[in-house]
Design a protein around this nucleic acid. Sequence first.
DNA 1: GCTAGGATTTACT
DNA 2: GTAAATCCTAGCA
Length: 192
Amino acid sequence: MADRQLMSVVFPASFFDRDAVNVARALIGTVFMVGSAGGVVVETEAYTRDDPASHSFRGQTPRNAPMFGQPGTAYVYRSYGLHWCMNIVCQPGSAVLLRALEPTHGWAVMTERRGVDDPRLVASGPGRLSQALGIDGLLNGRSVLDLPFSLHLGEPVNVVSGARIGISRGMDRPWRFGLAGSRFLSRPFPVP
DNA sequence: GCTAGGATTTACT
DNA sequence: GTAAATCCTAGCA
């Protein structure tokens, strides 16, 4: 199938130079690409400087140094020794974790990298998303405003929120955001 | 130096 | 539902 045409709009650095919670919400529905592969952002999480669940909570260290860089910096870290997780830095010490995409561009390369054919298993989860897009430690510290990254406007969407996944602290902060009704979430949002 | 514990995924019972 | 895979950071001795 042919990849849908993208709306070419430049995301300024100021888009990320604000509260990570707002950025996490605003990213839902946009199209995130690495090279020719990517899709619609359907799930994100925000992590802030004063957030006990954030890598930056105890201050800057060699590992989390990118989180204290310029807004728009990619913070890529290894999770559980084997997966890569992709974050976009906002204000110093805060970032947005990309948790799931609806695959829309570069189907062939993404399914080859993932070894699966089901669109719901291609990029639904932070580790899966990174693998599908070819994200690894080499991209850590690069700016998402520059190639090979690109961001594009999408259609207006409804956003839902809930508790973040996989953390042992900061569970009271409802900083997980998702595209309402999406079939490509890593996990469903609890129905109120 | 040593070690507990992950912002996860997959396979298996 | 439960567990294994896998590594390296951060915190403490």
